[in-house]
Structures are given as C-alpha cells and as structure tokens.
C-alpha cells in the first residue's frame, strides 16, 4: 500500500508531502522526507538519460512521440519502493509504497501507474486554484484529502 506521496517542484523543492501511516510523529514524517529526497537523484538521472536519448535518437521526430511520464520504480529499500512520475512541466510526483505490508509486497506496476496518473490529475486540479502561486507549497486541504483517499483506496 502506498504510504507516502510527494509533489516536488521543478527546482526540486518540496511542494507537498503527504503520508498515511500508523503514527504521524515527526520521526515518521522525516523518514518519508529522506526517502523521497534520496529518490530525487535517480529521478533526475533518469530524466537526463531519457532526454538525451530522445535528442540523439530522433532529433526531428522526437516531438511527435511523447515521453512516457511514468518513470517506474526509482529505487527500493528493505521496506519501501519508490516510484516516480514526471509531468511535462518537470513537476515530479513520487509515490512510496511499503513493501512490508502484505498488500504492498506484490503491487503491480500498472496500479502504480494509474495511481500516479490520478495524482497528476489531482495536482492539476489543485493548481488550477487561481490563488495558488505556482512554485508555492500546496496547502489545499481538499488536495490533501483527495490524495490521502487515493493512497488508501487505489494503491
């Protein structure tokens, strides 16, 4: 099951980190942040390689076939798996699943993919708020609620 969802801006600053867990202590919160933060390296690397591949392979036809936004498993630890998703505006969506829980151990890639797509949609909705400044932290309670329910229900 998903334990944490993070939205990261194009300058790699955290925009939103939401997690569900048994305990909501700061320790837990911190460990989530570590997880997501360390995933950024792999994420960036993957972005860089896909970009360069696109550029070299098909210079003129590259525009037509869109890169898949879903990046797949970024890395995994003993207890968690971290999946990445990058929007076309370089907003990074990171989903952390727990591999220790029974439901999370055999999660399917397609499930994560759909979950991240839905998260993307939620994010798009959230920043449609005219009072939201792009680049600011997302403090919308509605977004938070929706993301939490997404984590509980879909993944």
């Amino acid at each position: 099951m998903a334990v944490c969802v993070a939205v990261i801006g194009k300058d790699n600053s955290p925009l939103y980190i939401g997690g569900i867990g048994n305990d909501t202590s700061t320790d837990n919160e911190l460990s989530r942040q570590w997880l997501v933060h360390t995933a950024l390296d792999a994420l960036e690397e993957r972005l860089a390689t896909t970009n360069s591949n696109n550029a070299t392979a098909s210079a003129n036809a590259a525009r037509t076939d869109l890169r898949d936004l879903y990046l797949g498993l970024l890395y995994s630890t003993d207890t968690h798996k971290i999946y990445g998703y990058v929007t076309n505006t370089k907003i990074k969506l990171v989903l952390v699943t727990s591999s220790t829980s029974p439901s999370g151990s055999n999660i399917r890639d397609a499930e994560v993919r759909t979950a991240l797509r839905r998260l993307h949609a939620l994010y798009a909705d959230a920043i449609c708020n005219p009072f939201h400044l792009p680049g600011d932290q997302i403090i919308s309670q509605k977004f938070d609620r929706q993301v939490k329910s997404l984590m509980v229900n879909n993944v």
Binding site: W34, T38, L40, D41, A42, E45
Partner: peptide, 13 residues
C-alpha cells in the same frame, strides 16, 4: 560511489 555518479542526495543519505 554515489558521489562519483553524481547522486549527491543518495550519497548524503
């Protein structure tokens, strides 16, 4: 090694 491949965050972790 992480540092060498530029994974500074990982290295820091």
């Amino acid at each position: 090694l992480y540092k060498e491949i530029g994974f500074l965050r990982k290295a820091a972790f």
